[in-house]
Amino acid sequence: MHIVVCIKQVPDSAQIRVHPVTNTIMRQGVPTIINPYDLFALEEAMRLRDKFGGEVTVLTMGPPSAEDSLRKALTFGANRAVLLTDRFFAGSDTLATSFALATAIKKISDTWGAPDLVFTGKQTIDGDTAQVGPGIAKRLGLMQITYAAKVTEYDAAEGSVTIERRAEGGTQVLKSKLPCLVAMLEGTNEIRRGTMADALRGARAEIIKWNAKEAGVEDLSKCGLKGSPTIVKRVFAPSPRAEKAKFIEIPEGGSLPDALIAEIFTRQPALEADLTELARGF
């Protein structure tokens, strides 16, 4: 079997800082990681490969430095890595991103065989839209299963896959046809460390790099800013409340907790009776 896994290199969110005056992201020196959600997708793909045989190709679109994330994926055990990088892709929104990735997947398919499954993470931690997966599926005409918790069955002969999907209020068990796009939920497995052999191979392996043309993009107007129907017009800091927070201090002869409780019940008089009711329930 052949599985393509889309991974994205993202800034390690906890460490991003915003310039207090210019409101721009200060990226210098911000470490990057593989989008944590995508690791669940990668692991699930590698488990299927280990069981049924075949190859896992990881694909990312990003700046040349995204090579680091691909190399990391190789050391975990992916078989092949493709980096889609071109200034024409800059400023892509989710529609343009899914176009670029779908085009590259077609090329991957022509070069190394059609994938049975395409995996993505549930969402990225920087874009956080959960739209790119469905976007790729629609552009390639694949079946789509998002919020996947587990691939429970894979039947190459029948060309089917059975997946447990997180739905509102419960778990849906879906059976669909291959090829299928699966967006993996978090917490579903744990990324392996990779073997020593993988580490050695990963360190040396060639990362395949494609620009837009090499990836097979014919219409550049579908890429980057040009191909993005959404437009970011304004970036701004949220305004503080008109009325500043009232700071409670220890009253003379009183206690801080009591002063706070008094303040809460003065502002929300109905709450006291209701809390008494609620608290009695315990």
């Binding site: 929104d93 989710t94 529609l95 899914s98 956080d128 839209t129 959960a130 739209q131 790119v132 997966g133 469905p134 976007g135 599926a137 629609k138 552009r139 789509q144 998002t146 919020y147 997180r166 739905a167 509102e168 993005s228 129907p229 959404t230 437009i231």
Partner: peptide
Amino acid sequence: ATTLGRDLAGAVATTLLTGLTAD
């Protein structure tokens, strides 16, 4: 932006080739 809504919105927007702002 529920599991259903997000699954559907992304697919519909791509099919219609229009813009979608998440969450």
